[in-house]
Structure formats: structure tokens, C-alpha cells
Design a protein around this nucleic acid. Structure first.
Length: 273
DNA sequence: AGTGCGACCCGAACGC
DNA sequence: TGCGTTCGGGTCGCAC
């Protein structure tokens, strides 16, 4: 599902197509997903030019002349850039562009959200203002995580999904990071050793940068957009796997915080408790 | 503040 | 075959 590498891939592909184009018309067929005033959303975007596209954690931000159009794909959101004007099923927002082409947002489960803010308001009163550091950010240090984990008695698996601590990891990569770090997903975050925290930082960087290189992970319903199809699913070591690629033990699946958690009991032991 | 959990949504996969 | 049930998964909001 769209985690940091998938959103990064979508951003890079859309950038090639959209920069310099203007918006002529916005059609919204699922008003619930627009979280700011919808009339204003449609009106304000007319005449705006795409200047740049950025990614913060899993958030996509289309920078236009005067606004930031913020979009979260949640589970299954996808963008398509096509000639076809009429929306088909599950396409909830359609942007008619100055070159006659169309940017279409499709989201079967309607989990995605969009909102429009003035440029100077992107990090004020929006969910983006709360995002923690990304694994690639130099500020994501052992000291930072120690402080954040200090009062967290939740399983580390749950804490890795908290976007206010580290931004960008979702269920797939959280499973992968813990496997690579040889840490049990059940271990309480406040009990992690310095070495374990260092391993999490190192693995997160390695896994996410490898995944970006391969265009992200394409599994289940997330068949990406714009013909973008990642191949990191072939590199997964533990998520959706049956046998441990290191020790050949069967991979266990259990719910932690309601999410499917894949792990190897033998390789990911709870140490120093 | 930290924690736990349902809500959101709907097609696919599963069970009988 | 057909119908009902469960699952998935990011984020928010609410209760404790």
C-alpha cells in the first residue's frame, strides 16, 4: 500500500507530466474526501499552475502558484494522467488541464483525503505539522528516538507506525525493518537498547532507499498508478512470507494493534528484558 | 499524556 | 453455486 517509497515513486512520475500545466476545471464526485471547503477547493484551483510536487512522509503536496494541494492516498489512492475526460468508476476527483489532458484521482475505498491550503499554511494546523522525521533525515538520531520511545510502552511494531515519531513507515516496511533489525515486534519501545535503536535507523534507511530504487512495492490491490509498477515485493524478507529466508523457520503472523504482523520467532527474539 | 479501539470504505478472499 | 462473513490497512476521534 502506499508507504513512503510508493508515494515517492508517484511523486516522481507525476512531476514529469504536470509541472507547467494549469488547471482549467476541477470535478469532485466524492465530496467527503475534500477536507477543506469544497466550493473554494474547486474555485481556487482554477487557473493555478503546477510548480512542483513534494512528498512529506506519506503525504503528497502539489505546489501551485498560490496554494498547496495536499493529498494522502491512504490505502488505495492512485493518480492517472490521461486523455479521457469522463470519470470512470471510483474516480472521485478529476482535474482538467490546460493541455486538454486530465489528472484523475481514483480510490476504490474512499479512504484518501485532499485539502487545499495557502502556501504559508502548509505546516500550520494540518496533519503535516505533526510529522516526525523521515528515516532519511539526519535529525533522525538515536537520541531523538530514545526520547520519543522513553514513555512508550507499546510494542515497537505499533510505535514504528506512528507518523509523529518516524514518518513514512507503514505496515509492510515496519515488518521488514524489525526483521532486518532482528527485533521482536512485541518488544516494548521503551525497553529497546541503544544498539536496537541504531539497527532500526540503519535498516529503515536501507530498506526504504532500496524500495525507492525499485519503484516501491506492488502487492494486493495497490497496483500503483500511471503504469508505475514497483518490484520491491520480490525483495520482501518477512512480510507476506511463509518461510524465514535466513533460518527456514515458519514465519508467524499475529495482529499487533490490529495490524497483521509478520515475524520470525527464531530470528526476532525479545532480548534484555 | 499514553493507550486501546472502532469508524471510515468496499472489493476480494474465504467459509460453509 | 451462492450467499454471508472476514480481511485489509492509514489515520482520526473518542473513551478511559
Amino acid at each position: 500500500m502506499p508507504e513512503l517509497p510508493e508515494v515517492e515513486t508517484v511523486k516522481n512520475v507525476l512531476k514529469k507530466d504536470l509541472i507547467g500545466l494549469k488547471i482549467k476545471k476541477v470535478t469532485v464526485t466524492c465530496p467527503e474526501m475534500i477536507k477543506t471547503d469544497i466550493k473554494k477547493f474547486q474555485k481556487d484551483l482554477i487557473g493555478e499552475e503546477f510548480k512542483d510536487i513534494k512528498r512529506y512522509g506519506k503525504w503528497l503536496v502539489f505546489e501551485t502558484t498560490n496554494y498547496d494541494l495536499v493529498s494522502h492516498l491512504r490505502m488505495e489512492g492512485k493518480y492517472f494522467y490521461t486523455d479521457k475526460v469522463e470519470p470512470s468508476k471510483h474516480e472521485h476527483v478529476v482535474f482538467l488541464l490546460s493541455n486538454g489532458k486530465v489528472l484523475r484521482y481514483k480510490d476504490v475505498r474512499k479512504f484518501g483525503v485532499m485539502f487545499l491550503v495557502n502556501k504559508d499554511k502548509l505546516f500550520i494546523d494540518t496533519p503535516l505539522s505533526k510529522l516526525g522525521y523521515e528515516p532519511f533525515n539526519k535529525e533522525l538520531t538515536k537520541a531523538y528516538l530514545k526520547e520519543k520511545f522513553k514513555n512508550k510502552r507499546l510494542p515497537i511494531k505499533t510505535v514504528l507506525l506512528d507518523q509523529e515519531i518516524i514518518s513514512g513507515l507503514g505496515n509492510i516496511y515496519a515488518n521488514e525493518v524489525l526483521f532486518k533489525s532482528q527485533i521482536s515486534p512485541f518488544k516494548k519501545a521503551n525497553l529497546l537498547s541503544d544498539l536496537e535503536i541504531e539497527k532500526i535507523i540503519k535498516s529503515s534507511k536501507e530498506i526504504l532507499s532500496d524500495a525507492i530504487k525499485l519503484g516501491g512495492t506492488t502487492i494486493r490491490s495497490y497496483t500503483s498508478s500511471l503504469g508505475v509498477s514497483g518490484s520491491y515485493q520480490d525483495k520482501l524478507l518477512v512480510h507476506m512470507q511463509h518461510t524465514c529466508k535466513v533460518c527456514k523457520s515458519p514465519i508467524k503472523v499475529k495482529k499487533i494493534g490490529g495490524r497483521s504482523t509478520y515475524y520470525c520467532e527464531k530470528c526476532q527474539k525479545v532480548l534484555d528484558e
